[in-house]
Design a protein around this nucleic acid. Structure first.
Lengths: 224, 224
DNA sequence: AACTCTATTTATAAGGC
DNA sequence: TGCCTTATAAATAGAGT
């Protein structure tokens, strides 16, 4: 019976934490649904936990996708276009600066992940990477492969043309593969041939990020 | 002073609705943040409303992106692998059926949007489409263009080779453009040359979906 | 319309089973 | 462990400013 005023901090007791999680998740979902129906608002909530292998999604997967699709489209800049008073002027400058920050963060992240990629190629495993990292790494690898394929194609275009056609086909076929497919191939090759450890072996999803206060930067462009 | 037990229904009074929205949004965000810190859970919330042109995001854009990236990766099937008792067996069957439904929904949606595309090409405008629709339409158009380019490339590969190189380059270049870029081009061409109406002219984002109880189907594969 | 106030409803922490 | 219960904290509807 709610005797304490709960100090807002990580609950160290495992079972208490789980109990609290269950209760609060339920309450939260209820609140979201109420907000949505009372105010006619498009909203979604996604919560995933170490306790379930599926994320909790409100209103459901498809509904959430719809909201997210719109969210994806929304650039930071789409803000105040009217710009009349001081405040909205400043807002605009902030928006512009945010955009720059985002861009710079993306660049930084790209460099970081390129470094990780080379480390991987040099034999270092993927153990220390969380899912966000893996996702970005995937992207970087994908970009590099695209670049390589592009060069293969232009190389093949100039010399005698005997082999040209198949090479081009390959290039196109590769272009159409999703990054996820590349990623999976890459992971599978690595795991089967070089025995890189990866979670429980058959489970790519890793629950429970340690840093949920997002110290790391994860810019928009990496979420294509 | 909370005198009524609030009937869970859309609040018709505009100002009351807005007030409720503000209060409940605040409460909701607080709940999410509490859940996250108390239980060490990765979570995000996105709410957007007619009252703000930016969506409300918790913990912030980048944090949300991280969570969403993981969400995207999570296939419906990744569920109960242990499968021992009756319940989890049934759960698995449900998961499988859901997957099928998703696939079928995707196919249906594709057909629907293809029809819309042809209607557009025949001169009918985009006025009745919401953002979800436009997003899917974008995807369909993109797929068709890819297919067309692919055929152009194979056509060009067989005959005398004079023009081949540039054609291939074009193909590749197009492959690398994002769907959004295609979409924007397409929209811009249409709006500038044929004067198709589109929102307020310079504003692509449309707030306030009318059907927030997701009657329409919006499957996973359309959120690539 | 945007705030504050407070009577009530609602959520939930800690127990008990 | 998971589900009830219930005392208490927290959220908030409606009114006042």
């Amino acid at each position: 019976m709610t005797r304490k005023k709960v100090k807002l901090a990580f609950i160290t007791n495992d079972s208490a934490r789980k109990a609290t999680f269950k209760k609060r998740k339920k309450g939260l979902m209820k609140k979201v649904s109420e907000l949505s129906t009372l105010c006619g608002i498009d909203a979604c909530a996604i919560i995933y936990s170490p306790y379930e292998n599926q994320p909790e999604v409100w209103p459901n997967t498809m509904g959430a996708q719809r909201v997210l699709a719109e969210f994806k489209r929304m650039p930071e800049m789409e803000q105040s276009k009217k710009m009349v008073n001081q405040e909205s002027f400043i807002r605009q400058r902030i928006a512009k600066a945010s955009e720059q920050l985002k861009k710079q963060s993306k660049e930084n992240r790209e460099k970081e992940m390129t470094e990780v990629m080379y480390k991987c190629l040099a034999g270092k495993g993927l153990q220390n990477l969380n899912l966000g990292d893996l996702n970005d790494l995937d992207w970087i690898v994908d970009q590099n492969l695209k670049e390589i394929n592009k060069r293969i194609v232009s190389q093949a275009a100039a010399p005698p043309l005997v082999e040209q056609n198949p090479v081009v086909e390959l290039g196109l076929e590769r272009m159409q593969r999703t990054q996820t497919e590349w990623f999976n191939d890459w992971i599978n090759n690595n795991t089967s041939e070089h025995q890189i450890e990866f979670g429980h072996g058959d489970e790519i999803i890793m629950p429970n990020f340690s840093d949920n206060h997002n110290t790391s930067v994860w810019p928009n462009a990496f979420f294509p």
